[in-house]
């Protein structure tokens, strides 16, 4: 298993994501944003941070990087991709995932532990291996994490099983519609979420519930 973690100017959590991949198992390497070749990695993580300073809009500039073209090709070929926080924003901007992330409802950055519910998905999806409605304690930290999509699109996403994670009752930190914390693409191989599973792999620094999110990616790559 070889993990690739993208690195943009302004990425913050790429080393943490690299570490999390190694904890879950396998080899992990950073992929510089100017690379056009992913170097044969099995799964891609688009990490958190403030790529290009979040200027213009979070993720709006990073999506044009050469590495993102390679990620789109990897995803089109069925390769697994996980976008975390800013990575989720980048994947939405790139059109690889539906919807958009808006400023938090209270207009403030929020950092806290949040409970997530895993939502059932297609067997090919990254939620494969979770028990339905499994509850995960994973931190969030973002200023622009309010998931939004028009009502009809949300209905369609739910009907197709594209909602991957929801905030548990009372844990929605940002006003996301329908408590959506993460979504997947129709094929189920691309998943994005605002919470940070890479910050939930070490019992000393919090929970270890985030490992399950990486494990699911590992299974999807197998």
């Amino acid at each position: 298993m070889i993990w690739g973690v993208l690195q943009f100017p302004g990425s913050c959590d790429e080393r943490d994501a690299l570490h999390a991949c190694e904890v879950v198992g396998g080899e992990a390497r950073l992929i510089w944003h100017e690379e056009r070749d992913l170097g044969g990695v099995d799964a891609v993580v688009v990490p958190g941070g403030f790529s290009y300073g979040d200027y213009l809009r979070a993720g709006a500039i990073a999506r044009f990087s050469p590495a993102m073209e390679a990620v789109a090709a990897h995803a089109a070929a069925g390769g697994p991709v996980l976008g975390i926080c800013n990575g989720f924003q980048v994947l939405c901007e790139a059109g690889l995932l539906p919807g958009a992330l808006l400023r938090n409802a209270d207009l403030r950055f929020v950092c806290r532990q949040a409970d997530l519910l895993v939502v059932d998905g297609p067997k090919t999806g990254l939620s494969d291996g979770f028990s339905a409605h499994q509850r995960l304690s994973i931190p969030v930290k973002h200023g622009e994490g309010r998931y939004y999509a028009p009502e009809e699109m949300l209905d369609a996403l739910e009907a197709r099983g594209q909602v991957a994670y929801r905030y548990a009752e009372g844990h929605n930190p940002n006003g996301s519609v329908r408590d959506i914390a993460g979504v997947r693409n129709e094929a189920g191989n691309v998943v994005g979420l605002m919470p940070h599973p890479e910050h939930a792999v070490d019992p000393l620094t919090g929970s270890t519930d985030g490992r399950a999110v990486f494990k699911a990616l590992e299974r999807a790559a197998a």
Binding site: C12, D13, R15, D16, H19, R108, F109, V110, C111, R112, P139, K141, H196, E198, H199, D202, L204, T205, G206
Partner: peptide, 14 residues
Amino acid sequence: IFRQYDSIVGSRTV
């Protein structure tokens, strides 16, 4: 105040 700060990036915060 503290919840407006990222207190965990870097994976060192015990």
